[in-house]
Structure formats: C-alpha cells, structure tokens
C-alpha cells in the first residue's frame, strides 16, 4: 500500500513537473533565441501601440526584429528608406533585419490601417555612427514663407473640363517662367492662370484655353508613373479619411460634420461638433479648394500635418519624391 502511494505521488509530481518543465524550458529557450533580436508586439494604439517605441542602432550593424501582433493586422516599415514593408498578422511571428548605412533618426510606422488612431503607431530608431547625419532640407513651404493654415480658395476655376493637349498647342507662346519648376511649386493653378491671363501675349486665348495651358503645365511637372505612385500612396495612407474618391468622406471620418466653408472661420475647438471639434477633411474634387493651393502648400500640409484637425504628419515617413507624387495625384481629383 505504502509503495503504491509512493509511486502515485512520484507520478503526479513527475507529470506536473513535466508540464511546468515544458513551459519553463520553452520560456528560457525563447529568451535565448530572442537575445540577439528585438521582439516587438504590435497592438492597436488604444491597446498600447508598439510595445517598443525607440530602438538604438549603429550604422552598418544589422538589427534583427521579431514582430508579432496581439490583435489585428498591422504592418512595419521605416520612413524614408527602401526597407520593404512587412505585414504582421495576429499571433504569428515575422522576422526582418534592418541595416542602416547613415546615422540619423528614423521613424518606423504601422502600414496597415488598424483603427482611427492607426497613424499614431510610430516609433523611432536612433542610428549612431560615423558619417554625415541624414538631414532633411527645410520643407519648401517654409523656404517660400507660405502660411499653410490660411484659407486658399481659388479666385477662379475652369468652367469645364481642362485639356492639357489643347494647352500644349500654346507652349511656344508662353513666357519662360511658366516652365520653371519653382513657379509650378510655389503657385496655385489659379494664381498661374491669373498671371497668364494678365500676359498681353496671351490675350487672344480664351479663359478656357488659359486653363488648358495651366493644366498642361501641371502635366509637365508630373508623369504617369508619379501619378501611379501617388495613387498607391493615397489609397494606402490617405483614402481612409480623405475618401477613395477624394471627396473627404472616408470611412474614418464619415461620422464627423461636413466641412462648411461659411462656418470654417469660426473654427472653435470647443464647438460641440462631435469629436473634439473635428470636422471632415476638404473635398479634393472641389476645384475651388484644390486649384487655389500650390504644390508647396499641399506638400507642406502633408509634411507637417494639420495640427488639431486629425491630419497626421508625414514628414518623417514620405520621401520628397513620394510627397511630390502624392501632390500631383491630389490635383487629378480636381481637374
């Protein structure tokens, strides 16, 4: 009897011990495996966002990341680099290795929409080491002194659809400044139209023909591949708020009050219009709004974000080319 009891006790202890052992050994082994890599859990911002928000690195020293998600699909990418975006699925692990050759501060961010606060899922990687720091020139809107928060309704808009083809017919008659990239960048289409309208050499053109010329200038400053890049970036990053058709009615903002230009001047943050006074973004298909803005203004808004309006800041994320592509895509809504 006593012998059986002893065997029984040993067995129970042994079995429970094995169960605990599997766990403990697994835990320690996991710790070891992860010693040379950084494990990052992605969670919706409401649940804590990235579990690691700042990473220190050295130039030319690879960092191994082990990424997983605790709730929904997320993505991982590093702003202003060519590192391919990595999708992170709930409960699954995905590994990626980062290598930086220039010191500087990089921003990593979530690439798959994970709720209204998706854009808040960001963290920084501080890369130290030899070599010149990655620096960004001050954005054009600051160089040009454009106040991106003022109203910029277009003074004039085309009466009907514009035709860059028609506009190209008058290319030879145009003053030389119009083909200057600087001119394109710092002027809104409406401004350029008014300047061209005032040119005595173009007085024979109809108003619509001047618009065609402006459209042609805008076309000259972009390319189909830029528009395509812009379209992809827009769909992935902007459409959830600005709407898939640019109407400012994206699914994340559709419960907010509509943008009303009359009421806009009294933009009281304490007004009772829903979520902390937030309103829907502008309608990009509204020529009045878009044709009154210069590319520099749009890129400024993208870089800086619209403080307090809910528009995130994309400065640390998009390269200059990407922003230019986005801007040229935005104009396609309005033409």
């Amino acid at each position: 009897m006593v012998k059986k009891e002893r065997i029984a006790r040993v067995l129970v202890v042994l079995f429970v011990f094995i169960a605990v052992l599997i766990f403990v050994v697994g835990w320690l082994k996991n710790q070891n495996l992860n010693a040379d890599s950084i494990q990052i859990h992605a969670r919706m911002p409401e649940n804590g966002g990235w579990s690691v928000t700042s990473i220190n690195a050295e130039t030319n020293q690879p960092i191994h990341l082990k990424l997983t998600s605790d709730d929904v699909v997320h993505g991982f990418a590093i702003g202003k680099t060519n590192h391919p975006a990595v999708d992170i699925f709930p409960g699954e692990f995905v590994e990626t290795t980062l290598l930086f050759d220039k010191p500087g501060t990089y921003t990593f961010y979530c690439t798959r929409w994970c709720g209204v606060n998706h854009w808040r899922m960001r963290g920084t990687i501080d890369v130290r080491g030899e070599g010149p720091l990655v620096t960004n020139p001050p954005p054009a809107y600051l160089q040009l002194g454009i106040d991106i928060d003022t109203e910029h309704e277009a003074e004039v808009i085309p009466a009907t659809d514009v035709s860059p083809q028609t506009g190209s017919l008058f290319a030879d008659d145009l003053p030389s400044y119009v083909l200057d990239q600087e001119t394109y960048f710092s002027n809104s289409p409406a401004k350029i139209w008014m300047r061209l309208r005032a040119e005595p050499t173009l007085s024979e053109l109809s108003d619509q023909e001047v618009w065609d010329v402006v459209a042609w200038i805008w076309q000259k400053n972009t390319s189909p591949s830029m528009i395509e890049t812009g379209q992809t970036l827009y769909a992935e990053n902007c459409a959830a708020c600005h709407g898939e058709t640019g109407k400012g009615d994206g699914i994340m903002v559709r419960d907010l009050p509509k943008h009303d230009s009359d009421e806009h001047s009294t933009n009281d943050p304490h007004s009772e219009s829903g979520m902390g006074g937030l309103i829907r973004p502008h309608d990009f298909t509204d020529a009045n709004h878009v044709l009154g803005a210069s590319p520099a203004l749009f890129s400024g808004k993208i870089i800086r974000g619209g403080m307090g309006t809910g528009m995130p800041y994309w400065g640390p994320i998009f390269t200059e080319e990407q922003i230019n592509a986005l801007v040229s895509y935005i104009y396609t809504f309005a033409w």
Partner: peptide, 26 residues
C-alpha cells in the same frame, strides 16, 4: 467589402470566394 476600422476579410462557406479589404481600400 468596405472595412471601416481594421483589415477584414470575407469568405463564403461553400463558395470559393474571398475578399480582403483594408480601410480606405475597398
């Protein structure tokens, strides 16, 4: 399929049909 918060999918039992949509990309 229009996802309004996070990435969702839609697959139909018995049909070989699946859609996956990110918010903003129906």
């Amino acid at each position: 399929l229009i996802s309004t918060d996070v990435v969702h999918g839609l697959s139909i039992d018995g049909y070989d049909f699946e859609l996956i949509a990110d918010p903003g990309q129906s």
